[in-house]
Design a protein around this nucleic acid. Sequence first.
DNA 1: TATTTTTACCAAAGCGCTTTGAACGCCTAA
DNA 2: TTAGGCGTTCAAAGCGCTTTGGTAAAAATA
Lengths: 340, 340
Amino acid sequence: MNLKELAAHLNLSPTTVSRALNGYPEVSEETRKRVDEEARRFGYRPNTHARRLATGRAHAIGYVLPADKSLMIDPLFSDFVAGATDVYAAHGFDVMLHAGGQEEETSVYQRYAQGGTVDGVVVLGPRLGDPRIDVLNGLKIPYVVHGRVGALEGGYAWLDIDNYGAFHRATKLLVDLGHQRIGLINGYEDFNYANERRRGYEKALNERGLKIDPLVMSSGMMTEENGFQQTKRILQLANRPTALILGSMLLVAGAMRAINEMRLVIGRDVSLIAHDDGLAFLNASSLVPSLTTTSSSIRLAGARVAELILGIITDPKAEQPHELWPVDLIVRGSTGPVMP
Amino acid sequence: MNLKELAAHLNLSPTTVSRALNGYPEVSEETRKRVDEEARRFGYRPNTHARRLATGRAHAIGYVLPADKSLMIDPLFSDFVAGATDVYAAHGFDVMLHAGGQEEETSVYQRYAQGGTVDGVVVLGPRLGDPRIDVLNGLKIPYVVHGRVGALEGGYAWLDIDNYGAFHRATKLLVDLGHQRIGLINGYEDFNYANERRRGYEKALNERGLKIDPLVMSSGMMTEENGFQQTKRILQLANRPTALILGSMLLVAGAMRAINEMRLVIGRDVSLIAHDDGLAFLNASSLVPSLTTTSSSIRLAGARVAELILGIITDPKAEQPHELWPVDLIVRGSTGPVMP
DNA sequence: TATTTTTACCAAAGCGCTTTGAACGCCTAA
DNA sequence: TTAGGCGTTCAAAGCGCTTTGGTAAAAATA
């Protein structure tokens, strides 16, 4: 059933029915009620594409996951977009997804933008000096970056968590507990978030007069295996670090495995702090010992990013949003004073 | 730039330009070349919605993740859809995503179908007697189920892996190694895949004349924590099982933690087999000892499901696809003969 | 050379909606 | 009594494409 048929059935013009359904004022209450009822009764739903063509709005937001084959598809992503779904549904927006694949990432944006497929896009996993910013600016399509692109903080809308501050505080906590040699197992540092984290970590070491030693640092994949390998490597160094900071819960399982294998005790022989995105399948507080974390819900971030992009679309002239979320440092059992 | 403008620029009618661009035969080679070139030069992209309205095809497939709040958003999903992306891109299809959220799952399908938003949907995580089948049949929209809905194997298109056979073989392997008491840590058994797995496991036990003991079985969340809890519970039973089968790699990290904590040795004191969906962040072969698994790439399944739904859309009268993929049993270091 | 077929193009209709501009009836103010 | 205003409704245009049903010109056939 389409608008015309519904209108015919109601002895009304398509104009009036359309207006009634879309809440315009120039329809009598009585008519509106009648229209609403019959529309519901027939299960009428306006054709998405007709509406989109007529209004010029796609009522859709595009999400493009990095195509980089060297990286796994991010298991955080589903949580990120899950947070956004309700926001979009409430506004009648759809989510368009393109995950990995052969196609050039930037050309996906072009398809989306120039074909009018989406009204805006969300940029995930920004790198330092990410070329997508320029591409999107050229396309003149609204977008929000989850994270930031290196030092550049203006000129584009973003929501980020305070990765720098989080790892700065985490490192300071360890130093205050007496740790002098602290390892860092980080994500790929051409991702801005990982870069920020390293800088926060280094800053804290500098402030406390501790040396930065590349030997106890690593930058790589957020996998169990890499967590295991790097933990083992670092803890086997001659001058063994007494604490480790990890960029993700995904690394933790591997790290714990390595530590167990070396017959060390977490919280005593080696303190552990990891960043926790709030994923359900890997819970920091239920580990033994429970894990000290820098915590920030990626789900909530997803929801907020959705609100931001909708805001930009609704009012393009409004001030560009820049949100830097503080990150909780939750101290649990995996951190302790250094043993004499 | 739109079709009309491009046509005007070329001194051609929109008709001809449209045909040239879409590869229809009634255009001279020379004209086609000219059109292609200019279209590229101006970066012309046909308006998605206009095309969709005119053709009546949405050129989009809908993916709806279960809204069930008790379940975490599936970290497997991104891999599943990542596999599909290339297939869709090659056919000019988009992916529409709705993940979790407040909205009734079935009502999302209604929106998608009745509004013509998508041409077909993929059903994820089917339960026993899943109501979505009826809803989708009522909506008369093409769909493919990833998995099956209980015993029902006809009347809908599906692609499934042989969960029953996989766990049957895995259990037999353990029995053949001498294990008499084998634990099962399963996913929620109202999901069909988990149900099948339990049945395969029980079948093998029955065949070998071993007792099925609910005490050494569990059905629940696929999380590290649950893996830890259940492993601990089961291995602390008076008559301790000598082997464990796990429904997911996500459970493995927890299981290994529990086993380590109990000072048992994997492959000697307790054999371990887990199902591996091929997720990059949790690699079975790199664990120590390497893990014996039932393996099936969820990414490949995602790609194939994409092909199937496109096939159905292209030719609705073709025979309904039913694909049951065999599952590899990869024997590695975590399984060994039972110790005397 | 006359006729049919083929080739290459075009005008116009239509997809299902929104929106502009106009009309109609009724009420109020002058 | 008439002009203006307001509340409701409608006809028609338009969004940007595809597709149907043509028509000329060129090529093939008789």
